[in-house]
Design a protein around this nucleic acid. Structure first.
Length: 421
RNA sequence: GUGGGCGUAGCCGAGUGGUUUAAGGCGCCAGGUUGUGGCCCUGGAGAUCGAGGGUUCAAAUCCCUCCGUCCACCCCA
């Protein structure tokens, strides 16, 4: 027996209403905020990700689905959504479009992880990117839209954590101070942190080890070392967020697992922090497009995991269940009636009704049972009598009432009942 | 990648060495007379008890390996 590969899942018909609800909510907001949809390939050149996400990150080090294709090209299933969008921005000369270019995507994301609740090897992300302007109002807009999405879906008790990690001008100064701070106590830190101290000091801050945590808590804060430009950017962003009435918490230990971020970083988390707490996150990445060989282009964006949204909505009992029934179910009692039914099906569907007919030879009882199971609102019964008189029986499944009507007035009759016209 | 729990029909789940030809419920299919659903009643189909190997006269039940799943770590969405 074949099964879905580890860490992947089928999204079954009964789950689709929930997915659609989430997608529709997001689509509405994207339109309101002026974002346009983009789709990129599931796989890209491996280099796109190693260059942007960062060689030292866990994603690149141990989580990418990388392989050589039959033409010996190095291919990777996308482990995140931002780099491909930036690649598309460059490839299609989008810097010639009015800036900022505001794009959103729904994409499957691939990471070789050990699966558990809310964590998969294939998952679905929604992301939005505003590319081409460094204005902090765009940072605010991105955070606002993220916050709005969760809000409109009805999610409660979310916190937005905010930090800034400076730019290539001021970050080195900060990192020096950070390293100095840690140097005296690195011997008591965990093994991972000793490596981080050498290779990626920023990540010392989000170590979960209790000993390292207390050190991180009292460590120097990036926002105390910002250059004037970054400082002003951060101040303005906070002002805008207050105007938008977005509650946020400053967290100097918030850094992200991807190396391309500059200045703003943020994460949205549910209150009851389980294992997989983050439901969405993002930040500014002013150097990414330049590093990919494009013109120097500032940008800001965020992404959210649809499975994580779903998980939290389920906890809060916010998921819709039913996918509704069909309008009409046709129950033919013999072969002649079936022929009649096939014609009626066609007509009803052309009129815009959802209609189906019982398949196989079944008793009327069985057919009605089936109509009930499909949540049909009306059943059309056709038997010998009806064929003779060229009529049909129209039965209202909610009330149980039924009447015999001429076959040629069926559409009219149904329209009256279902469309109220 | 590390540590731990779990794995019985589509789903939930009883059974922890021999009255098991593996309960029960949901769901599915059919019937409850001659052309009428949702409730109720009756019946039926559906399980190589995750896979492979071992111990034993005897294994769903004990042991080993693998796979899957869940939880924690890690990381993130």
């Amino acid at each position: 027996m074949f099964k879905t590969p580890r860490g992947t899942q089928d999204i079954l018909p009964q789950d689709q209403p929930a997915w659609q609800h989430i997608e529709n909510t997001i689509l509405t907001l994207c339109h309101r905020y002026g974002f346009e949809r983009i789709s990129t390939p599931v796989f890209e050149d491996t280099g796109l990700f190693t260059r942007t996400v960062g060689e030292e990150t866990d994603i690149v080090q141990k989580e990418m689905y990388t392989f050589k294709d039959r033409g010996d090209s190095e291919i990777t299933l996308r482990p995140e959504g931002t780099a491909p969008v930036c690649r598309a921005y460059i490839q299609h000369g989008m810097h010639n479009r009015p800036q900022p270019v505001k794009l959103y995507y729904f994409a499957t994301i691939y990471r070789y992880e050990r699966p558990q609740t809310g964590r998969f090897r294939e998952h679905h992300q929604f992301g939005a990117e505003a590319i081409g302007d460094k204005d902090p109002s765009l940072d605010a807009e991105i955070i606002h839209m993220a916050w709005k999405i969760f809000n409109n879906l009805g999610l409660k008790d979310l916190t937005t954590q905010l930090n800034t990690i400076g730019c290539p001008k001021c970050r080195p100064v900060y990192l020096e101070n950070l390293k100095d701070f840690y140097s005296s106590r690195i011997h008591e830190m965990c093994g991972d942190c000793r490596v981080r101290h050498q290779r990626n000091p920023l990540r010392l801050l989000d170590c979960k080890n209790p000993v390292c945590q207390s050190a991180a808590d009292s460590s120097p804060r990036s926002y105390d070392y910002l250059c004037p430009e970054c400082g002003q950017h951060f101040e303005k962003l906070k002002t805008y967020l207050r105007i938008l009435e977005i509650p946020f918490l400053l967290n100097h230990r918030l850094v992200r697992g991807l190396d391309y971020y500059t200045r703003t970083v943020f994460e949205v988390q549910p209150e009851d922090v389980g294992g997989q707490s983050t439901i969405g996150g993002g930040g500014r990445y002013d150097n990414l497009i330049g590093e990919l060989g494009g013109p120097p282009t500032p940008a800001v964006g965020f992404a959210t995991g649809l499975e994580r949204i779903m998980l939290n909505m389920e906890k809060q009992h916010l998921l819709p269940k039913s996918n509704g029934g069909i309008d009409i179910f046709i129950a033919p009692l013999d072969e002649q009636a079936r022929e009649k039914g096939i014609g009626l099906l066609n007509i009803l569907r052309q009129e815009g009704f959802s209609a189906m007919m019982a398949a196989g030879e079944k008793s009327l009882k069985a057919q009605l049972r089936q109509a009930g199971a499909f949540s049909a609102r009306y059943v059309i019964i056709i038997g010998e009598e009806e064929i003779k008189k060229n009529s049909v029986i129209l039965k209202d499944m909610a009330t149980g009432e039924q009447e015999t009507i001429p076959a040629n007035s069926l559409v009219n009759s149904i329209s009256k009942r279902l469309k109220g016209s």
